[in-house]
């Protein structure tokens, strides 16, 4: 009897591997091997044009240049990292909160036109991001719809801005209102940290980056909403009924029951958000090419620029590997935090 089960297990294992083989082969050829190649070429001075075999091995020089080199490559890398971090810090919490809110709203049993709202919110997610970016280029123009709308809502108090050409950081603008700027507090401009001055580090996202952040939030919410919605519909109704019997109000139920039960989903949504925002590329490519004044230069765009504009593929791949490490570490930290809360 015992051997029979073992035999069955082994057969299952073989069948499992056989079923997996096509995927494993495709994964290996299109994902795993390219990653190994990227890792190898990040250690060379390959220019991305010559035959790759001719590239010279340079060890960790690319990483050294990007992280501690002191030149323009280091400056651009930390600038890109700064922009991307502001992007993630702004987008991830907002899109997660809004997606949860929308999911709760469209999950109401008595809401009318439920499927219409669900479709409407999901719509941007299935539209090509390039098409959306092109449309938003028009909306963000100085005499575009967004400025018109803001001006209408504020009864003309809103002064139109050329969104995609405005390099001013929003923290800089706020600090200026408070009377703080690099001229009055010179140490901000004179103290340099990793190639950028302290004043540069605290710029906040520029108006142009903010514009991309808003658009990105709007396009991603739909997908995240669907994930939350699926989780909400899986919630055990007994728990809610029990809570109601105990006299809990709507807000208490949401805070004490819905949110804790959603924790695995929230972890998933935040992880997706972090990975997505740290890799933001297409919107930047279409809308700003990293400008104005490099304030929309993101790490992923820097990878592309090094490899294809500057003919420094090795350097670009080193940045790509660093990006992978950064995302990996961030996800690990986030996992610790989520698990820590549970304990």
């Amino acid at each position: 009897m015992a051997t029979g089960i073992k035999q069955q297990d082994r057969q299952d294992a073989i069948a499992g591997w056989l079923f997996m083989t096509p995927t494993l082969i495709i994964f290996g050829i299109f994902v795993f091997i390219p990653i190994l190649f990227a890792l190898y070429f990040s250690l060379t001075d390959w220019n991305g044009i010559s035959p790759p075999g001719e590239a010279a091995f340079v060890g960790l020089r690319n990483y050294q240049d990007v992280l501690f080199g002191g030149g323009i490559r280091q400056q651009d890398f930390y600038k890109a990292l700064k922009n991307t971090t502001y992007f993630a810090l702004g987008v991830v919490p907002v899109q997660t909160a809004l997606a949860l809110f929308l999911a709760v709203v469209v999950n109401q049993r008595f809401l009318r036109f439920k499927s219409f709202f669900r479709t409407a919110y999901y719509f941007p997610a299935i539209t090509s991001s390039v098409a959306i970016s092109l449309i938003f280029l028009f909306l963000y123009q100085k005499d575009g719809l967004i400025n018109e709308a803001l001006s209408f809502v504020t009864f003309g108090a809103w002064k139109p801005v050329a969104w995609m050409a405005d390099a001013r950081g929003i923290f800089h603008i706020w600090l200026n209102w408070l009377g703080v700027n690099s001229e009055r507090v010179p140490w901000l401009a004179n103290t340099s940290l990793l190639g950028l001055s302290v004043w540069d580090w605290i710029s906040g996202p520029s108006i142009a980056l903010l514009a991309i952040m808003l658009m990105n939030t709007w396009t991603t919410i739909g997908t995240l909403m669907v994930i939350f919605l699926a989780a909400l519909q899986d919630m055990p109704p007994q728990v809610y009924e029990a809570a109601q019997m105990d006299g809990a109000g709507t807000w208490t139920i949401f805070r004490r029951i819905t949110l804790p039960l959603l924790r695995p989903t929230t972890f998933f949504v935040v992880t997706l958000g972090l990975m997505g925002t740290y890799q933001v590329f297409d919107q930047v490519y279409v809308m700003s090419s990293g400008g104005p004044a490099k304030t929309t230069l993101t790490v992923a765009y820097l990878v592309y620029r090094s490899g294809f504009n500057n003919f420094e593929m090795g350097m670009g791949l080193a940045v790509a590997i660093l990006l992978f490490i950064i995302i990996f570490i961030l996800t690990m930290i986030q996992r610790r935090v989520t698990e820590g809360e549970k304990a």
């Binding site: 104005p292 004044a293 504009n309 500057n310």
Partner: peptide
């Protein structure tokens, strides 16, 4: 390799114009 110089100048020129 002059793309870096071009980027730096254009970025500076945008800020100077602003």
């Amino acid at each position: 390799g002059f793309s870096d110089v071009l980027d730096t100048f254009n970025s500076g020129l945008q800020e100077a114009m602003a």
